[in-house]
Write a protein that binds this DNA or RNA. Structure first.
Lengths: 134, 134, 134, 134
DNA sequence: GTGGTCTAGACCACC
DNA sequence: GTGGTCTAGACCACC
């Protein structure tokens, strides 16, 4: 796995790294139970401070994406299965944001629908391959 | 139009206000060409610092949502009609973000699809009414 | 309000401070909406690093004890009112821990009961005074 | 007796094991004088490092829960019967912690009381059975 | 003024 | 070896 951060992008480094890891997990590139590189290793590779990587791992653990064991390392957590009212409202929020952004990009409803179904199909595919492959 | 900001919400005030204005524009609550309240007026109404409102208007102008004419005030800009490669990649990005978030919320593809079409229909409705109404 | 930390106690400083603030909130010494000292101020007062205080404030915000607004400061949050199944199981856990500890301290069930009701009464009292007082 | 540890739970393994043993003793599942499995045996069974088990036994001995005789093995210690001022203040501390946690969980005083008496009754029951049974 | 991010580097806890 | 805590201090974002 390769990660990439740009310290001059204006987006905090730890946010950039967090989003990349979340995406890798969501697309099956990182499988459940898989070991993450150590804090020091990843810091070296990205030439950022170990503290920054540590912060990312800690936040991802709190969000249930990673699991960390002192002395052992960090691992991709099992995906949680509960979809409750809190998740529902978060999803609604995310969908609203998408529509507002689409409007700003002068994307009409039909184009948005087409693009969405396309992406969704691609995503399902990647997930299936991830489940079979590894 | 009524806006609302909560200084204690953890989300920067200027972000809260910006998103509300963008949403109002995207749903047709604010029509093209409509005049926005003055910086001072809005600041008073929300009891926030005028600098914060000014920043919001400036950023929205840069993003093409508002247009400001010195001495006259700020107005809702005409919606940009060009959907080019830059817009395309922005849309792709937004869609990817949505899928990653859905995964994290343990929303499966079918639920996501159902929710999306629902929201999209509601959005089309609001737009149509906005176009007729005002 | 006076806080106190001992860097040589073996318990991380940030844990010590966190627990003291939580206790102050729980007993009404810190009222809802009250402003906390700034990160720098509290760091100076305790002669610890501002980063350590910042970490405490951030964790307490995530736990819903404080609310932070950039540029304004940190404030005691409104107490959340939802008591769901997750809270229930946390409470059960806390009670089990208490019983195990009581056993280890050779406290019999009757003594534990007596002590508990005593403490509970005292706690109710402090809360009532806090609600009236401020 | 069966113990169970999860290296990925975020809680140090030695803490998990310690708490389980303490709880087993406190509920009478492990009787006074009963022999504990050897360090190696337990390490094998849990597939953890023998050093970790050894550390647990050492700490439990310091806390008066176990007694170790060189060459013979480890045994559940006799329960200490002295309830002095030190025990008293420990109990007070534990009770305070409980109330603070209850507050944070938005548990009101009446619910806490009800839950506490319930748990206490269950605990008395288990102790009685333990004393008769084994 | 307020809090947030990041670096550099020390030292500790866990396995 | 692994991650966790803490300091010292720079610089940025927000109001």
């Amino acid at each position: 796995m390769w990660y990439y951060v740009d310290p001059h992008s204006g987006i905090p480094i730890y946010v950039q790294l967090k989003e990349q890891i979340k995406k890798a997990v969501a697309t099956g590139l990182l499988a459940e139970g898989q070991q993450m590189p150590s804090v020091r290793e990843l810091a070296l590779q990205l030439t950022i401070n170990p503290n920054t990587v540590a912060k990312v791992y800690q936040e991802l653990e709190r969000e249930g994406v990673l699991q960390t064991a002192r002395g052992l390392g960090s691992f991709v957590a099992k995906r949680r299965k509960d979809f409750g009212p809190q998740q529902e409202s978060s999803l609604d929020n995310a969908l609203e944001k998408l529509m507002v952004e689409a409007y700003q990009l002068s994307v009409d409803a039909d184009t948005l629908y087409a693009r969405f179904t396309e992406k969704l199909a691609a995503w399902k595919d990647r997930l299936k391959k991830g489940a079979e492959g590894q």
